[in-house]
C-alpha cells in the first residue's frame, strides 16, 4: 500500500473503523489543523475524441483538509469527494500519520480490509453488468 492510495481507499473505509483510527492517532500524537475542511471545486477536463483537444465538463465538489501530525513538518492532506468535512479530516490525519511513519500497520490494515470489501462489491456489480451482454440476431428476409 502506498501513501497515494490512502486518499481514495479510506474514503470507502468503514466509517466507524476510520473514526477509531483517527482518534487513536490523535490520542498519541498532536494534531494541528492547518486548513479546516473546506468545500472546494476541481475543474474537470475531458478529452474530445474528435479534435484531440480537451474541454471542461464541469466541476467536482471536494472537501480539502491540511493537518500536521506530531511534528509540524509532518503534513497530512485529504481531498475527498463531495461535501464531507469529518471524512476529510479523518483521511488527512491518516495521511499525515502515514507520511510520518506513525500507525502505518493500522492504516495499511484498514486499507487492505477496505480493498477487499471494494473488490467483493465490484465482483457483484460486474456479474450483473456481464449478465446484460447481448448480441442481437439479424432477422432474415423470407
Amino acid at each position: 500500500m502506498k501513501r497515494e492510495d490512502i486518499n481514495f481507499m479510506l474514503q470507502k473505509a468503514d466509517r466507524d473503523s476510520l473514526r477509531d483510527l483517527y482518534k487513536s492517532i490523535k490520542n498519541k500524537h498532536s494534531v494541528e489543523i492547518l486548513q479546516s475542511p473546506t468545500a472546494q471545486t476541481l475543474l474537470q477536463p475531458i478529452k474530445d475524441p474528435i479534435s484531440g483537444g480537451e474541454f471542461y465538463a464541469g466541476e467536482v465538489l471536494v472537501t480539502t483538509t491540511i493537518v500536521s501530525v506530531g511534528d509540524r513538518q509532518n503534513k497530512g492532506w485529504a481531498m475527498v469527494q463531495d461535501d464531507e468535512e469529518q471524512l476529510s479530516l479523518y483521511v488527512s490525519v491518516c495521511d499525515g500519520a502515514f507520511g510520518a511513519g506513525y500507525f502505518v500497520d493500522e492504516i495499511e490494515s484498514l486499507m487492505k480490509q477496505t480493498q477487499l470489501e471494494l473488490e467483493k462489491h465490484q465482483i457483484k456489480i460486474n456479474r450483473k453488468i456481464n449478465s446484460t451482454k447481448v448480441s442481437f440476431d439479424l432477422m432474415q428476409e423470407s
Binding site: A39, Q40, L43, Q44, P45
Partner: peptide, 21 residues
C-alpha cells in the same frame, strides 16, 4: 458552485478508460 473556491484542475478524463456499466 459559484460560492466555492476552485482549488485547481483535475487530470483529464479519457472516456476510453471508463469502467463500463
Amino acid at each position: 458552485r459559484s460560492s466555492c473556491a476552485r482549488v485547481g484542475m483535475a487530470k483529464t478524463i479519457n472516456t476510453d478508460d471508463m469502467r463500463i456499466i
